[in-house]
Design a protein around this nucleic acid. Structure first.
Length: 684
RNA sequence: CGCGGAGUAGAGCAGUGGUAGCUCGUCAGGCUCAUAACCUGAAGGUCAGUGGUUCGAUCCCGCUCUCCGCAACCA
């Protein structure tokens, strides 16, 4: 099958938060590289993206913030769209599932399937929150686990004992939204009978698409082998696209039905805006000569390989995806990225903190892309790749070639003379770079493809080191001319090879080389730059990133970790019951701090001299780490136990114990009376 | 025993039934045109553990351990 055009879609980011490096590494950067590559080759390609704006979590966020769901999605759609644009993700269209076009498209799609009898209808009893007036998804019901009897188990799983649950098993179920007691209520939903589609899905994926990545293929095989079940495509919710069926008031399309249709709606929207360039939307979705590629993350495999294809097939007139390149996940500094825990590098913040460094992040995310397994992003690695690879190898090579040309040939491309064997050998080393990069990209191996581009710069550095034009300049300028001509040709090649990966830097480099026009097909050639061409102004292609900038980012993450620890704090369990008699045995008193200093050679101990109204006493307390300036405690009134037997610590006798509260972060905080009292009075 | 993916030098990652590779880091040397950049060389690994198939296993198979995903948010 030869294809005439390629339609590339990217998973629709959920408009419930900003986009982070995990989204970029998993989906948007590889997709953008692929699309830019196809465009460079002059192929007919469309790049579709958009925000996914329906679903329960958005309604919950809206409720929590006291705004409408539309307010929430408006905010994040704009933030996401703007940051993608600034980052150079070259969507042809970036629309949203709350658009009018989409509402009609999704509604019509559902109706077509409904009319064809492709759905089954089922009524079941589900938990309903009478206060919030909404049916509850499993996860939004909490209660006591029927197995381990711990509190706070979710409707789908108890996190204490790990048991999978169904909401009806929970003891004393509560709505996580309002806290009220949910009631059982019958509700009718439409299901897509995936089991009906199992036969052709099996043939289509397992036989015809053995070339899909092993993670994708394996996951599909697993689902198919387990047997597919009917899947609900509607929900009881007031936020979404209404189910276009009589008597279905208060029901909307399930986001997983609605969202992938967004790819189609957004295509239609684009075609209506630019018909002269993109033609009819149906060409992109219904013509067998169109190749459909979905870029997604691994959590989306089943929807894009099984559910959505089943929907398309059930409708009848659509093509199916040709490939679904799915990446694994990117971790951040060893921990999984999490929106709710704010453990992420957010794109909009990166763009703010590292202006004009889009390519650095693009490079790092591609070099370390989680193509076969989960990978880790660290700021130290980010810095190292910038400083040691982009700056030292690529930027430096370009700079060397250009500076030498300025110096010896007034910034004009010198003529190429007689080639030596070594010249020819060097040329041979990158003659096939085009084939290699293309092979890798055609197989969605972006990491290897980018590495191949970087090899050009390595070859250039080695060529300069081996030929040493700065030495020859004293004796043989003709030879220097040839060397620099070839070096500049290598630089021009590098600009083209990096174009899909690092578009901002390639543009900059092309300006320096005065390459106003260029073609992907020039890649591998050594006569891209004609002799005597005037070069542009020399500037640094990349700049070093110093430790201070990286430290700032790492500090930010450390602060978030600390904050999460505080947020996760729960009061300790109440101790075993005791009596007033036990309490009465304690002689608790108030005293004033007269002196306070650190005990030498002890990390935690502070030595207090306390005015107890009876001549004073010495007390040691292990709170030094919470009070780095102990002298500031002098004058403060504190609580202490007066009738403990003396105890010697570090050679000093401690006559009692001072009261401190242990804060959520582990810091110790001295307890004091709310107003001045007489030293030595009792507490009870 | 739920199902998939993954576990390989200090770090991050490739890879293959026959001598284990890349980038960075480290160490040594060279060069000095270049953003203290570049080039050359070296050290560094019981390829998670364990049992099996095989002339030979890091690769194939069995079991064990660990991490990630499939289940609310989430690429």
């Amino acid at each position: 099958m030869t294809f005439k055009r390629t339609l590339v879609t990217t998973a629709l980011p959920y408009a419930n938060g900003p986009v982070h490096i995990g989204h970029l590494a998993g989906v948007y950067v590889p997709a953008d590289i692929y699309v830019r590559y196809l465009r460079l080759k002059g192929e007919d390609v469309m790049f579709v993206g958009g925000s996914d704006e329906h679903g329960v979590p958005i309604t919950i966020r809206a409720r929590r913030e006291g705004v409408t769901p539309q307010d929430v999605v408006d905010r994040y759609h704009k933030l996401i769209k703007d940051s993608f644009a600034e980052f150079g993700i070259s969507f042809d269209v970036y629309s949203r599932t709350t658009s009018k076009t989409h509402a009609k498209m999704a509604s019509d799609f559902f109706r077509t399937l409904y009319d064809k009898g492709e759905f089954i209808e089922k009524t079941s009893e589900q938990y309903y929150d009478p206060e919030a007036k909404t049916f509850l998804a499993d996860r939004y019901i909490v209660g006591e686990c029927p197995h381990c009897h711990s509190q706070g188990a979710y409707g789908d799983q108890c996190e204490k004992c790990g048991t999978s649950l169904s909401p009806t098993e929970l003891i004393n179920p509560q709505s996580a939204i309002s806290g009220s007691k949910p009631i059982m209520k019958p509700t009718t939903h439409w299901y897509l009978p995936l089991d009906k589609h199992e036969g052709w899905l099996r043939e289509w994926i397992l036989e015809q698409h053995k070339e899909w990545r092993s993670n994708v293929y394996g996951q599909c095989k697993s689902w198919l082998d387990l047997g597919l079940q009917p899947r609900a495509v509607s929900r009881d919710l007031d936020w979404g696209i209404p189910v276009p069926v009589e008597g279905a008031e208060g029901k909307v399309l399930y986001v997983w039905f609605d969202a992938p249709i967004g790819y189609i709606s957004n295509t239609k929207e684009l075609c209506e805006q630019q018909p002269e360039r993109f033609g009819q939307w149906q060409t992109w979705w219904k013509d067998q000569s169109t190749r459909l590629i979905h870029f997604i993350g691994k959590d989306n495999i089943v929807f894009h390989c099984i559910v959505f294809p089943a929907m398309l097939k059930a409708e009848g007139s659509y093509i199916l995806p040709d490939n679904v390149p799915s990446n694994e996940f990117l971790n951040l500094e060893g921990d999984k990225i999490s929106t709710s825990r704010n453990w992420a590098v957010w794109l909009h913040e990166y763009l703010r903190d590292f202006p004009d460094k889009q390519d650095v992040l693009r490079y790092v995310l591609t070099a370390n892309a989680p193509e076969t397994k989960d990978n880790d992003f660290t700021w130290r690695d980010f810095q190292a790749r910038n400083n040691n690879e982009l700056v030292a190898i690529y930027g430096n090579f370009v700079n060397r070639a250009l500076v030498l040309t300025k110096k010896y040939f007034e910034g004009k491309v010198p003529a190429c003379g007689q080639l030596t064997d070594y010249d020819r050998q060097t040329m041979a080393e990158f003659a096939d770079v085009k084939t290699k990069v293309e092979q890798y990209l055609n197989n969605f191996r972006f990491r290897d493809a980018q590495k191949e581009a970087m090899n050009l710069a390595r070859i250039g550095n080695k060529y300069l080191a081996d030929t040493e034009p700065w030495k020859l300049a004293k004796t043989d300028m003709a030879r220097v001319a040839t060397i620099l001509n070839l070096s500049l040709q290598i630089a021009a090649n590098t600009a083209i090879a990096f174009e899909p990966f690092l578009p901002f830097s390639s543009k900059k480099l092309r300006a320096m080389l005065n390459m106003d026009s260029f073609s992907w097909n020039d890649l591998g050639r050594i006569d891209i730059l004609p002799a005597n061409r005037e070069l542009g102004e020399v500037q640094l292609l990349f700049e070093k990133i110093d430790d201070a900038e990286i430290d700032k980012q790492m500090q930010r993450l450390a602060d978030i970790k600390e904050q999460n620890k505080l947020n996760a704090y729960k009061p300790a369990e109440i101790k075993a019951p005791t009596t007033i008699d036990d309490f009465d045995k304690m002689d608790i008193r108030v005293g004033r701090v007269l002196e306070c200093q650190k005990v030498p050679k002890a990390d935690k101990l502070l030595q207090f001299k306390i005015d107890d109204g009876m001549g004073g006493r010495t007390i040691l307390s292990g709170i030094a780490q919470s009070y780095p300036e102990p002298e500031k405690l002098v004058g403060m009134q504190v609580l202490f136990i007066a009738n403990f037997p003396p105890r010697t610590l570090r050679g000093i006798e401690s006559q009692g114990m001072i009261f401190s509260a242990v804060d959520a972060d582990g810091k110790l905080v001295l307890v004091q009376p709310s107003r001045e009292v007489r030293n030595g009075v009792q507490v009870g």
